[in-house]
């Protein structure tokens, strides 16, 4: 029988709760100092319940917070998915061939430091459509970490593994599927984890620019322009939780595909 409530897990929960308590304490303090310009945790909780009332409402004029969240997640999913589809093979090629590395690496080095937001107007000019421009922006910004990590993985395959492939006459396909991919996989997942983190951060900023349905626009329009600071706080909490859940998924994948040498 697995013990769910071991001393260790209870302690972990307690530590987590005390962390949250400290955060709420600081929040309450800031709220007090700003004379409730920043709403108290309790006031925010009330707004939170109100916002969560019909989360998946999807009428023409009123959209629930859940609908907005899914809309943001959808854009991140498409942009991140396309970016990864592009970045993984390219990274593996880069890592496997010194020539490809020398050709592609300078491009990556120049484009990587560019703020993802700078790509947004370019996307808008190309697609003439702001949701598509957001996806384009996510696509670009989720390329780099995956590309770099996949390349790192592929370029660090131990000579031992390559020797096995030579000694037993592996075909290219067998080398790819039995050595290159399994060895690079943990690195690729690390890249994906970094990428999804960046993508999730960028989507909020992107949606502030693009408008439409999404968490970013919710923060800007209903929160700031609507003068409802509590809504901004609610959105921050939701964005934070979803972001950490996404990260958890990839941490789990990382553990799943790691191996002892």
């Amino acid at each position: 029988m697995k013990v769910f409530f071991s001393a260790k897990s209870i302690l972990a929960v307690l530590y987590f709760l005390s962390g949250m308590l400290i955060l709420t304490g600081i929040w309450a303090f800031v709220s007090m100092v700003t004379k409730h310009e920043i709403p108290t945790p309790l006031a925010t909780w009330a707004v939170f319940k109100e916002v969560m009332h019909h989360p998946f409402q999807n009428d023409a004029d009123t959209k629930g917070i859940g609908t907005k969240l899914l809309s943001s997640l959808g854009r991140v999913g498409i942009g991140f998915g396309l970016g990864s589809l592009f970045a993984i093979p390219l990274g593996l090629i880069m890592g496997s061939s010194k020539i490809a590395m020398k050709i592609i690496n300078p491009i990556v080095q120049i484009l990587k430091p560019v703020s993802p937001l700078a790509w947004f107007p370019l996307g808008l000019a190309i697609f003439q459509d702001s949701p598509k421009a957001s996806i384009f922006m996510i696509f670009i910004c989720s390329l780099w970490p995956t590309l770099i990590n996949a390349a790192f993985g592929a370029s660090h395959i131990p000579q031992d593994h390559k020797n096995v492939s030579k000694a037993f006459g592996f075909s290219t396909w067998k080398y790819l599927t039995k050595i290159l991919l399994p060895f690079s996989l943990p690195h690729i997942i690390t890249g994906l984890r970094l990428s999804i983190g960046v993508a999730w951060m960028v989507i909020v900023a992107g949606e502030m620019l693009s408008g439409g349905i999404g968490l970013g626009y919710f923060v800007w329009e209903e929160g700031f322009n609507g003068g409802n600071i509590a809504k901004i706080l609610v959105a921050i909490i939701i964005i934070g939780i979803v972001g950490s859940l996404l990260d958890k998924c990839f941490t789990w994948l990382q553990q799943r595909f790691s191996y002892a040498a």
């Binding site: 593994h161 020797n163 096995v164 000694a167 037993f168 006459g169 050595i179 399994p182 191996y259 002892a260």
Partner: peptide, 19 residues
Amino acid sequence: SPGPDRGIVFQNYSLLPWL
């Protein structure tokens, strides 16, 4: 080149750790 007429046992086992 290496070939299947010669079987090699490497110094550090060289097993593929994911298989």
